[in-house]
Design a protein around this nucleic acid. Structure first.
Length: 562
RNA sequence: UGGGCGGUCGCCAAGCGGUAAGGCACCGGGCUUUGGAUCCGGUAUCGAAGGUUCGAAUCCUUCCCGCCCAGCCA
């Protein structure tokens, strides 16, 4: 029986379990998370991080953090730092096991020398274009490179001179001598080393030849003694190649297992496209709260635990799939419902004057901080004659089942009194409702016997004179369609960008207890949603992480449909 | 078209020959000073067709559909 909080079954976990039972690796489990430092981490990476660190934790093993930094042209320390901080924030610790493929450059070089000496690799002078022609196609075999038969001595000499910087970038490569007719294109003499006159963020100008990912990855795993090398589906075709290198080199074989990467509805996971959104200003940066990046989710108000939970629930399999973003949102609500203090905030204020409430009177009503957790206590909220309520909580002409304010209607003010709407003030020209006049029933104070009176609706409010002004940013899905690629013939995925993905409200009023709210702290604005304090701001600014489930919105939508 | 990998409820996903877990979403209903939370109830015969078997989502055959591979990217 699985315990409720134990990881659910998935095929990778089962494989590890089987290996453990078979006493492979003497019961050792060592995984790794291998990012390339050329971009910021997103929720898709979180799936991999949780999987790798989770497997290690569950089976008493360890998980390395290894940067696959084999392409100096696109990598940067900035990314290394960003990635490390994201993993830490997510809640994982790689201890002192922080590695870099570049740490193995000398060793990888020596591995290549061995292959050359064994006649398994050769220096090829074909240009990139020629190499493509020689490679053949999916259905036709390739042709052997004319340089394939060079002698070991010539290859060694050339390889040493490549390292010494004697040749132009792109003029030669070191290739594995495998099989140009293989039905697996990865086996058609793949490039192992290329000449790149680029400064590497760690090794500087020490090298001008760099191993390809294909030549570096498997060997790096082997060097580290990784037991289970978990990667995404597209590397399935590369596995035979990695096995080939490891076999020729006669070194330790990790077990590679491939799983499907995460896709989420209404957003994107492609590094290239996310970069495009940033560069073209569709979002404000990598940490824009609308981005699926970990930095973005963090700023949006997502918690590490909710993301870990999400990763646990989506499972791990080999089927390409797109998870409904509603599940992610659910995981956040679930946690914040338990932990987030409740508070009252009015996003679109509508002034309410309680006609029969004394002008100079102020009461402190007691409000529960979290009904899910009594230990979080209560707080005092000031109540007075002039309040603000939510504009949408008043309808001059209320539809059926609308339980909020309307002319002549009663409603409960949360933690305070039942009030009745007795007057509506409008802007003479536009007809816009600008103020409500109400009367309160002094016998209905929250907590009192209230004479058996009950009303259908309860709304939140804030005392006009005591409330604080705040800015609130409402976020919605980045794209208008579940699949951003679902476009008309010829149209771009960007045509599916949601123009209303961000709505900024500047004249919101929040209860005074929010003064000095700490950046990144989370609150539930009662009846509205979960919000977190923006980290970048001087004034009180809240980001809406996720709205509360809204049954009324559903009812109304259904009513409008018919 | 060659090779690799997939196809279980609207979306994820367990299951590994013994008669379809769970979560999200959705739809009812109870409760409620958040139309929140919570509680109860509802919804699949497993891509298709054959076959093996007392018995198949699980084995075999054929077919259909989807994804990946022709970077000196990862």
């Amino acid at each position: 029986m699985l315990k409720a909080d134990s990881p659910s079954s998935n095929f990778i976990r089962n494989i590890v379990l089987e290996d453990l039972e078979a006493n492979k690796n003497h019961g050792r489990v060592l995984t790794r998370f291998p990012p390339e430092p050329n971009g910021h981490l997103h929720i898709g990476h979180a799936k991999s991080i949780c999987l790798n660190f989770g497997l290690a934790a569950e089976f008493g093993g360890l998980c390395n953090l290894r940067f696959d930094d084999t392409n100096p042209g696109r990598e940067d320390v900035e990314y290394v730092e960003s990635i490390k901080s994201a993993i830490r924030w997510l809640g994982f610790d790689w201890g002192d096991r922080e590695y870099y493929a570049s740490d193995y450059f000398e060793q990888l070089y020596q591995f290549a020398v061995r292959l050359i000496k064994d006649g398994k690799a050769y220096i090829c002078d074909l240009s990139a274009g020629q190499m493509r022609e020689y490679r053949g196609t999916l259905t036709e075999p390739g042709k052997d490179s004319p340089f394939r038969t060079r002698s070991v001595e010539e290859n060694m000499g050339l390889y040493e001179r490549m390292r010494a910087g004697e040749f132009q970038e792109g003029s030669r490569t070191l290739r594995a001598k495998i099989d140009m007719a293989s039905s697996n294109l990865n086996m058609r003499d793949p490039v192992m080393y290329r000449i790149l006159y680029a400064t590497h963020h760690r090794t500087g100008d020490k090298w001008c030849i760099y191993p390809t990912y294909d030549f570096a990855h498997g060997q790096s795993d082997s060097i580290e003694g990784i037991t289970h090398s978990v990667c995404t589906l597209e590397f399935e075709d590369h596995r035979p190649l990695y096995d080939w290198f490891l076999d020729q080199l006669k070194v330790y074989h990790p077990r590679q297992i491939e799983f499907a990467r995460l896709n989420l509805s209404y957003t994107l996971m492609s590094k290239r496209r996310l970069l495009e959104l940033v560069e073209q200003g569709h979002v404000t940066g990598w940490d824009d709260p609308r981005m699926p990046t970990l930095a973005g989710l963090r700023r949006r108000g997502y918690t590490p635990e909710s993301i870990r939970n999400f990763c646990e629930r989506i499972g791990v399999a080999k089927k390409n799939s797109t998870v409904d973003i509603a599940l992610l949102e659910h995981c956040l609500r679930e946690e914040l419902n338990r932990c987030a203090p409740r508070v009252m905030a009015v996003l679109r204020p509508l002034r309410v004057v309680i006609d029969n409430y004394p002008e100079d009177r102020v009461e402190e009503v007691e409000a529960v901080n979290n009904p899910e957790d009594p230990s979080m206590g209560t707080r005092k909220v000031p109540f007075s004659r002039v309040l603000y309520v939510e504009q949408e909580d008043f309808r001059e002409d209320p539809p059926k089942q609308f339980f909020r304010l309307a002319p002549g209607r009663e409603v409960r003010l949360r933690y305070a009194y039942i009030i009745k709407c007795v007057g509506v003030v409008k802007e003479p020209v536009t007809g816009e409702v600008t103020e409500l006049h109400c009367t309160f029933d002094p016998d209905t104070k929250s907590g009192s016997a209230q004479g058996g009176r009950r009303v259908k609706g309860t709304i939140h409010w804030v005392s006009a004179a005591h409330s604080l002004e705040a800015e609130v940013r409402l976020y919605n899905h980045l794209f208008v369609k579940p699949d951003p690629d679902d476009v008309e013939e010829g149209a771009d995925w960007k045509s599916n960008l949601n123009e209303n993905s961000l709505e900024i409200l500047t004249s919101c009023r929040v209860e005074p207890s929010l003064a000095g709210a700490v950046p990144e702290s989370h609150y539930q604005f009662e009846r509205l949603g979960y919000f977190s304090v923006d980290s970048s701001d001087r004034t009180l600014t809240f980001n809406r992480a996720v709205p509360l489930r809204d049954t009324w919105a559903k009812i109304e939508k259904a009513q409008k449909k018919g």
